[in-house]
Computed example of a mutant assay.
Amino acid sequence: MLNRERGADADLGRLIGAVGRGDRVALRSLYEAVAPKLLGIIVRILQDRGAAEDALQEVFVRIWQRAGSYDPQAGAPMPWLVAIARNQAIDRFRQDKSTRLTQVEDGVLERLPDGQDGEADLAQRDALTTCLERVETPQRECIVLAYCEGWSREELAARYDCPVNTVKTWLRRGLISLRGCLEAA
């Protein structure tokens, strides 16, 4: 078994060396040899197959660009390839999360779940919408993002560039205001 692993490492090392010299056929062979394993790692990090497939393409662009710097004396080829894939997936995850946290949130009230039991639910939804409109903007947006979209306090704090305790206060005050309005309605 150990000899087989050494043989596989040697084969991967030769392929990476050839890729470093600009050999496109070697890149294809390397892709066929390691893409399934690297894709599995990326999918576990991103939790989205489509995004993982895009990230895998970026991984192989990086491998193409960096293969000339691979030193087989510094370590086995598979950990080197896995590190590139893992780092790319983490970068992609952070970028996607950062984009999500900084997007302008338009129509936050339209994201309230629709009722499914007819007029009673419609009346409750209208009352909730009316009462939410009376809650101050950051509190209202935090409530909707937290309770309808599942955002964490930490994500909301990053979105509004404020401490987590401020978000907790906004949520608490917003819910108190909302409860008071709904009870009066």
Rank of each mutant, 00 (worst) to 15 (best):
R6P: 03
R14G: 12
V167W: 01
I16A: 07
A52K: 07
F60L: 01
Q103S: 10
I176R: 08
P77D: 15
A74L: 14
K168I: 07
L15G: 11
A158Q: 09
L56M: 11
A185P: 04
R140M: 05
V59N: 00
G107Y: 02
R173A: 06
D11L: 15
D71R: 09
A127C: 00
E119W: 12
K168Y: 11
R4K: 15
R179L: 08
D114I: 13
T102P: 09
R49H: 14
V135P: 01
G17Q: 10
E32F: 05
P138V: 01
D54Q: 12
R44Y: 05
A33Q: 11
L109Y: 04
L30N: 06
P163N: 05
Y31E: 06
R44D: 08
Q57M: 08
A85C: 11
D71T: 02
G174R: 00
L38N: 02
I16M: 10
G7D: 11
A85Y: 10
A8L: 14
L171W: 00
R172T: 13
E32G: 05
L38A: 02
R134S: 09
D71K: 11
L30F: 07
G17M: 09
I45F: 01
A123Q: 15
Q73T: 15
L145I: 02
D121S: 09
G150N: 03
G40S: 09
L27R: 06
T129Y: 03
R179K: 13
A123I: 15
G118A: 06
S69M: 14
G13F: 09
G68D: 03
L145V: 00
D54A: 08
G13R: 07
V144M: 00
L122T: 12
Q116A: 14
W64G: 00
